[in-house]
Amino acid sequence: MQPKPFENQLAEQEMACHECDLLVSFPELEPGSAAVCPRCDYVLTKRHQNAMERLLAFSVSGLVFLLMSALYPFLSFSANGQERVVTLLQSLDVLADEQQVLLALLIMVVILIIPAAFLMGVVYVIGGLKYGAVLPPYGRRVLRFILALAPWSMVEIFLIGTMVSLVKIASLATISLGMSFWSYIAFTVLMTLVLLHLDKVQVWSWVENSEY
């Protein structure tokens, strides 16, 4: 379903710049184009090709990979005949055992809980808009919540951190990468794609248009 144009039927729309408050008018945007503030170069809003379909595809597959990376072994480490295999959750458990409960919780929230909640929210709201043609119950609240969560997802940073640690200990022992590690990489790519395709202004205009 293409969102029904209502207010956006006007050839020009006015929007204040998020970063310098300049009032900018711009015509209806074609998919693949963006509106940029002439005063401070801030990207006001972007339109993507088949944004709804892509968002749904990326978030659903992202969730599958996230589930896989939570279940399977993440990394294994062996030296002098001793081997140690850890899953993502076990690795946080070790941290909690070392009197670092707060740190373990914080990491779990930014690498698993926030990204999972975010993707589920995207599926719920966009899926409802696309297949139900209306905003699902509590849709506004869910959308506000997940958009506020988005900046606190640290999936890609965690992945780089993991790679740095692997390089650091590669000389000490034999490292093998588990199924979970590879799914986490796939999940990171998909999460990034979702964030790139999710334009707040666009999503809220879908919500607005779904109500008429």
Binding site: L75, F77, A79, N80, Q82, R84, V86, Q90, S91, L92, D93, V94, L95, E98, Q100, L103, A104, I107, G161, T162, S165, L166, K168, I169, L172, A173
Partner: peptide, 9 residues
Amino acid sequence: AILVSLVHL
């Protein structure tokens, strides 16, 4: 976090 959980022998 990764080092602590992995290097535990």
